[in-house]
Computed example of a mutant assay.
Amino acid sequence: MREIKYNKNFKIITVIDPGADDFDFIENEFKIERNDLEEFKMPYHLSDYDVRTKYSFLVISFPKEKNFLKEALEIENVYFFFSNTFFICLSKGESLVNKIIDDILDDPKISLPNTEKLLYYILKSLLKVYYSILRTIDHEINFLDKNINKLPPQILNQRIVFLKKNLILFLTNTKSFYEVFEEIVKNRMPNFRRYSHLWEGFLDEVNYIYVRLEDYQLIIDGYQRSIENILSININKNILLITLIQTLFLPPTLIASIYGMNVNLPLAHKNYAFYLILFFMFFISILFWLLLIKKKG
């Protein structure tokens, strides 16, 4: 679905699930290189920025705002092609970016003298998704901290493994986002020069998010090691209990094996032989038990 909107200073074209006709239109109308448009078909693309002769090409990869603790994190790619006279946004399905653009255009308080200012407002709004996920991670870490000695280690470990998987993907995504804008700000790339102070502040925010995620990763790694140690101790206790039971039954098993042989054995023909052997079995087992307890103490 293609939609063209007009600002007094430039055209805004948003395309949802673009097809070949949309690519032909954009290529012919705005002289966008076909190879750049074809990148949209890639299933996953890290954030990236390139400069062409007549336009700039920016790919933004950002997480979808879903239940971070119960669902696998999904990454969405949005492709921007922009110059002084046009701003093109390509997205797959109903993207959050399309809603952001509509909200910006409908807000009478926002002035859009150029495409750079529009892009700044879009990216600034996208950071709300990042902050929302940060709050979710922070809440989950507080939960783990309060319940690490209360809940079963297996349940805690499942939560930590799922959280860590999403966190690694989120961290990788944020890293590429940060690296792209670090290069843009430091090198004062084309179409990012009018509002350098705004982009420097934006870069600081992305860096803050990235550093927070690295800190969270270290904390979660520590929790995971603690839980794994608890699980390992529990497994060792179970192995010790099984070994103890086997050890206690070794003497009675040996005596029973000996008196099960079809040969003449001492006391075999006595009336009290069974009770005497039974007593001897219990006596040796109790003796072993006492020795093990004493050794453990």
Rank of each mutant, 00 (worst) to 15 (best):
L37R: 07
I227Q: 01
L254G: 11
E116H: 05
M1V: 14
P251V: 11
Y55K: 10
Y131D: 15
V59K: 00
E94V: 13
I133K: 03
F143I: 02
E27K: 14
E3F: 02
G93M: 02
E33G: 13
K64T: 15
A20M: 14
L292Y: 14
I133S: 00
M281C: 15
D221G: 11
K270R: 11
F81G: 01
S196W: 10
E76P: 13
Y259F: 09
M189R: 15
F280K: 12
D204F: 10
L134C: 11
V97P: 01
L151A: 04
N7P: 01
L46G: 05
F40W: 09
R193P: 03
F10Y: 09
I155E: 04
I141Q: 04
S232K: 15
N187Q: 15
L73Y: 08
Y55V: 08
K31V: 10
E71H: 14
V211N: 12
T85K: 11
P266H: 06
L291V: 15
I220C: 02
S47M: 05
E205N: 15
E38A: 13
Y178I: 12
K175G: 10
T174H: 02
K295M: 05
I245D: 07
Y259C: 05
D36K: 13
K70P: 07
K11F: 04
S61K: 08
D103A: 05
I235G: 01
E182F: 11
K31D: 09
H45I: 09
R225A: 11
N67Q: 06
E200I: 08
D50K: 13
N238D: 12
D24Y: 14
F81R: 05
I227P: 01
E76N: 13
Y216D: 08
T243V: 10
T85A: 03
I100H: 01
L127W: 14
N207W: 12
L126K: 06
N7D: 02
M281V: 14
D48W: 12
N28P: 05
R135V: 12
K186G: 06
V263A: 02
L58D: 00
K164T: 13
I137L: 08
L213D: 02
I104V: 06
L134E: 12
W199I: 02
T247G: 02
F274N: 07
G222W: 04
F10Q: 04
N67E: 08
S232P: 10
E182M: 13
I277D: 00
V59D: 00
D21T: 14
L105D: 01
P190Y: 01
L267N: 09
F279N: 12
I122V: 07
